[in-house]
Design a protein around this nucleic acid. Structure first.
Length: 542
DNA sequence: TCGAATGAAAG
DNA sequence: CTTTCATTCGA
């Protein structure tokens, strides 16, 4: 099977330049689709095709009210060339880079005006604050932004299939515009550009950093708006004069801590965390992770990761896990590389065997596919790295492999999280219905999916098939990008998986659902290797 | 296969 | 200017 270039997906869209969401070329009349949970269901964003794609990753859930409502007219959009971003004069044809997770977070954060202008209006300083705040985000929350970044990236690629990041290419243009030949002042070298003041070596700088850290801490506590303003004011009233001493202290001096603590605690005695937001909502707001940082938040050794329990799963950031070169020539893309590295030595926690390591199994016997292209994933009952986290965020974080939280949905009813979908369960014959067992499927009213059974699929697999390309084409409509196993596979004909004792099993997808465990409890396979009939490009994200 | 550079948002 | 992250480029 010829290797299919990733861009072939999008280049089939004739409307790539028109700026309108193309949806799918396949206007199949109403149909339903089902897929297995290990087939990377994605979360529906909006079935409304009129929703401009620019708003997709910023406002994925219009239905869920944002606690920090943004002022009207400030809805986040992806700023394509049709809109000049923040006053930079650029050619109308200029295509900006897709925003990364942090940039999206920062934008949303600033838009939500949690830090009043009076507290800080300078965007450089805001960047510092937001950067510190960003580092304290719990992983789930950060993943939300990583997911958005992936969506943004996917959408960017859909719109500008031929775009390539060309660092420096724009620098030339800049020099031209600035008419002066301009020394190529390396901006981050600290040498080139004028160094403003800060000659008093660290003093003002230090206090600035201190203040940033303080504000970031207050944000972590959940303070925003007026609360934040008050707290900052209190801090400034009495802590400002401590700055010098603190600055010295930070340079290795062993200043008695009681002094600082006393000062601080008297300045901002109790701050009641009000950040009772649902954690995985999609705006950059302080959330419930505000801990018991009563009194003055220590400005340095703050909990970097609020996760109380170290979670060794998926330490690889999503964006890294699913990273693929956006700009590399398509036929050089080897997106499995990131997968291989991401999953090579991941330790999984499961109910049955915490911290069990399951390295990629070595297969014996005939292997039809290129082992280097194998994609590993977890399956039903376990977290699936193939599914991005749900950002539906209506208070119940969905499972990784159940992004619609369908397992909490009565069978046969539409998910409250995603009315477009209905949950069905095929229980193994004779078994009581057990939602952790059996095949569960999502039925969609989305007509845009191709369910033409490819060669290799038998009729009884029909219900588990949905064209992955359809998902890919629809990706911008969904919060979650379909992370597909074998996007271009003719058909997955068999899955191999290893169990806790490293036994190898093989079977079709439905067999996975019937895999019994010694304990009488369903144990999902640790890993699944998807076999295909021919070669394939294991695109992991589109 | 590195580290350095660039640029994404914003005012 | 300033942040983090993704990507490219040159050595």
């Amino acid at each position: 099977m010829p290797a299919i270039r990733e861009h072939d997906i999008v280049s089939t869209n004739a409307d790539d330049d028109d700026g309108m969401p193309p949806l799918v070329d396949n206007p199949n009349p109403s149909m339903t689709f089902t897929f297995f949970t290990d087939m990377s269901p994605i979360t529906a964003l909006s079935a409304d095709p009129t929703v401009p794609f620019e708003t997709i990753w910023e406002n994925p859930v219009p239905a869920s009210p944002l606690e920090f409502a943004e002022p009207p007219g400030t809805q986040a959009t992806f700023h394509g060339p049709e809109r000049v971003s923040h006053g930079k004069k650029r050619d109308a044809s200029y295509i900006p880079r897709p925003p990364n997770a942090f940039i999206l977070f920062r934008s949303s954060f600033i838009r939500s005006q949690q830090v009043p202008e009076k507290v800080e209006g300078n965007h450089s300083t805001l960047s510092k604050i937001i950067g510190k705040y960003w580092k304290t985000l719990p992983r789930e929350e950060r993943e939300v932004w990583e997911a958005k970044a992936l969506v943004a990236q996917a959408e960017h690629r859909r719109r500008y299939p031929d775009w390539r990041f060309r660092p420096g290419a724009n620098a030339l243009a800049k020099l031209k515009v600035k008419d002066g030949p301009q020394t190529p002042s390396r901006r981050r070298s600290g040498q080139g550009g004028r160094k403003p003041k800060a000659n008093s070596a660290g003093k003002s700088r230090k206090s600035g950093d201190e203040r940033c850290a303080m504000i970031a801490d207050l944000l972590v506590e959940g303070k925003t708006g007026v609360d934040l303003e008050d707290a900052v004011k209190r801090w400034e009233d009495c802590a400002g004069r401590d700055v010098d001493r603190k600055a010295n202290n930070a340079n290795g001096g062993d200043e008695p801590k009681e002094v600082a603590l006393a000062n601080e605690s008297k300045c901002h005695e109790q701050s009641i965390s009000h950040g009772a937001r649902d954690s995985v909502n999609a705006d950059a707001s302080p959330s419930i992770r505000a801990k018991s940082n009563e009194g003055c938040p220590p400005t340095q050794a703050r909990a970097q990761t609020p996760d109380a329990i170290p979670d060794h799963r998926f330490r690889v950031p999503l964006t890294a896990m699913f990273k693929r070169s956006l700009s590399a020539p398509a036929d050089q893309i080897t997106s499995h590389d990131s997968f291989d590295s991401a999953f090579a030595n991941i330790t999984y926690d499961t109910e049955d065997s915490p911290q069990r390591t399951c390295s990629p199994p070595s297969f014996s016997g005939e292997q039809r596919e290129d082992a280097a292209h194998a994609v590993f994933c977890e399956s039903i009952g376990n977290l699936s790295p193939l599914v991005l986290p749900s950002i539906l965020g209506d208070g119940v974080p969905a499972r990784w492999n159940d992004p619609y939280n369908l397992l909490e949905t009565p069978i046969g009813l539409a998910s409250t999280n995603c009315p477009e979908l209905t949950y069905a369960l095929d229980s193994p014959s004779g078994s009581p219905v057990d939602q952790s067992f059996g095949t569960y499927s999502f039925y969609s009213t989305n007509p845009d999916f191709d369910r033409t059974i490819p060669p290799g699929y038998t009729q009884d697999m029909q219900n588990s098939y949905c064209s992955l390309k359809s998902w890919a084409d629809c990706a911008p409509l969904y919060e979650q990008i379909p992370i597909f196993v074998n996007e271009y596979a003719e058909a997955p004909t068999a899955y191999d998986w290893c169990t806790t004792n490293n036994s190898m099993y093989r079977g079709r997808p439905d067999a996975l659902n019937h895999y019994p465990s010694d304990t009488g409890r369903f144990v999902g396979p640790d890993m699944i290797r998807v076999h295909t009939e021919g070669g394939y490009l294991p695109t992991v994200a589109y």
